[in-house]
Amino acid sequence: AMPLGSQPVEFNHAINYVNKIKNRFQGQPDVYKAFLEILHTYQKEQRNLKEGLSSPGSQPLTEQEVYQQVAKLFENQEDLLDEFGQFLPDA
């Protein structure tokens, strides 16, 4: 079950986007895997930040860095990158 909440718009958008990425990189599962990895890292750091768990001195991943990593990953796929920017706060 999915924690749908009351924001079906974001949810549907995210589903469509994930499917688009999967279709686009069908022959390159590594790209999709790397994308998930970036999201995981970002998510984890956001959570640590919120809970004050980030270790002192560590530099959390900024939105800009996330965007740049994804840009590298989605090279020549401008539409996917543009759409990613719609999800990322501060992009």
């Binding site: 924001q7 974001e10 995210a14 994930v18 999201l39 995981h40």
Partner: peptide
């Protein structure tokens, strides 16, 4: 129709929570 693996669901969840955060910031 969508065929989502658990990994996909995680990605969808992360993306939609990012989008929500973004909207809340606006």
């Amino acid at each position: 129709n969508y065929d989502l693996t658990p990994e996909d669901s995680t990605a969808v969840f992360m993306l939609s929570s990012m989008a929500r955060q973004k909207r809340d910031l606006l």
